[in-house]
Amino acid sequence: MTADALASLKDFLRADAERLGFGAFGVAGASGSVLAGERLSQFVDQGRHGTMAWMPETLERRRSPKDLWPGVRSIVVLAMNYGPDEDPLDILSRPDRGAISVYARHRDYHDVIKGRLKELAGRLVARAKQSGLGTHDAKVFVDTAPVMEKPLGELAGLGWQGKHTNLLSRDFGSWLFLGSIFTTLDLETDAPGQDRCGSCRACLEACPTNAFPAPYQLDARRCISYLTIETKAVIPRGLRAAMGNRIYGCDDCLAVCPWNKFAETASEAKLIARDDLKAPKLEHLLTLDDAAFRALFSGSPIKRIGREKFVSNCLIAAGNSGLAQFSVQITALLGDPAPLVRAMAVWALCRLDRTEALRLRPAALDREANETVRSEWHALEKAQE
């Protein structure tokens, strides 16, 4: 009787998840993946997490779901498709525009998915009680806790972790947002996903900064998504040129995946790209003060990195553009209140108008107290020698 009630509950949950816009659904056991835990430990031990201090701090809890919540018995993993309606790599050939990762071109997916998960979890617990299964609990997570969602997605049968370390689906390709419901219910688990990458190396070879030391391994310190979003440190000079016009995230390894031939365009309205974020003009983005930045990216995940980081990314893109039209705006930003903005303005001006940068250097060094900015001016001097 209990087995039948649990099976019926799982069927109800699957149908309700589809109603709420989730395209993929599966159940994993609470023990998690031993291999995934070992990979994570190796990743941290090698320092590939960069400045993301929260990764070693939460390592033990992240390795096993039961370390996060001892009472969990089953984990429901769900995915929502955010497939683009055009090739996201087309923007890379337009140096006057900024390339924003597909996932960040509209509402913050955390807000969209978490609300749906809470509704689904509430209905799960209520339905379980109505079915005579007793009182149970559930907790929802959307990239906001030490949960290894991609390995759990593979364990739940949603797909497999590809050579680029992201989850791949036969039905949706690369474009999936993941969320999970931890529950004390003992639901039947699904068969794990099977690796179908074969001999393909498209994602590895597409990476502009060579962030994959080997298949299934990522060095975040070289990943453009990490460089433009996660780290507050100055982006290494040796990686800036390879960033091109990518100003928030990078889709290259996802976009080239052959499995995207099965991908569908996002149907959730809040995840469909805003027109003004598909190919925003750099000349406008470089003029944003803090108030304008907050207004433009209200409700967007981009807002979280702040105006200083975002404009500094835009300056790198301008420096890579080869377009002299940006020189006036870049020069104005040499006096910006934010040190990181001033530093990247120095680098960008040097790329577009070295003669002007050399002319401005002596006076700029006389009034500049910040060592990060001074180091950019000194780098210009050394390059001259």
Rank of each mutant, 00 (worst) to 15 (best):
K139P: 04
K150S: 04
W377E: 03
F182M: 11
R361Y: 02
L158Q: 06
L334S: 10
S180V: 13
V44G: 12
P65T: 10
M148S: 09
R39S: 09
P301V: 03
A357T: 07
A145Y: 05
T265D: 04
S93M: 02
V125E: 13
Y226S: 10
E381L: 08
K163G: 00
D289N: 15
W259E: 07
I181R: 05
T372Y: 02
P236C: 09
F12G: 07
Q42F: 08
L296W: 04
T165A: 04
V142P: 12
P56R: 14
K10D: 03
D289F: 12
A343C: 04
A99G: 07
D251Q: 05
V341Y: 11
R237F: 10
A145F: 04
V76P: 01
D275S: 12
P280T: 04
S41I: 07
D143T: 04
G26C: 09
A292S: 14
L277S: 03
V147K: 10
M52I: 15
A317R: 00
R61N: 14
T51P: 06
L360M: 08
F310T: 00
R246H: 12
G29V: 05
H136T: 15
R307I: 00
R14M: 09
W54I: 09
Y216H: 13
I181V: 12
G47Y: 08
P208F: 06
R94H: 11
P301D: 07
R354D: 12
G244Q: 10
R170Q: 10
A292P: 06
S31I: 10
L124W: 11
V147M: 10
E356D: 01
A263I: 02
A15S: 14
A343R: 15
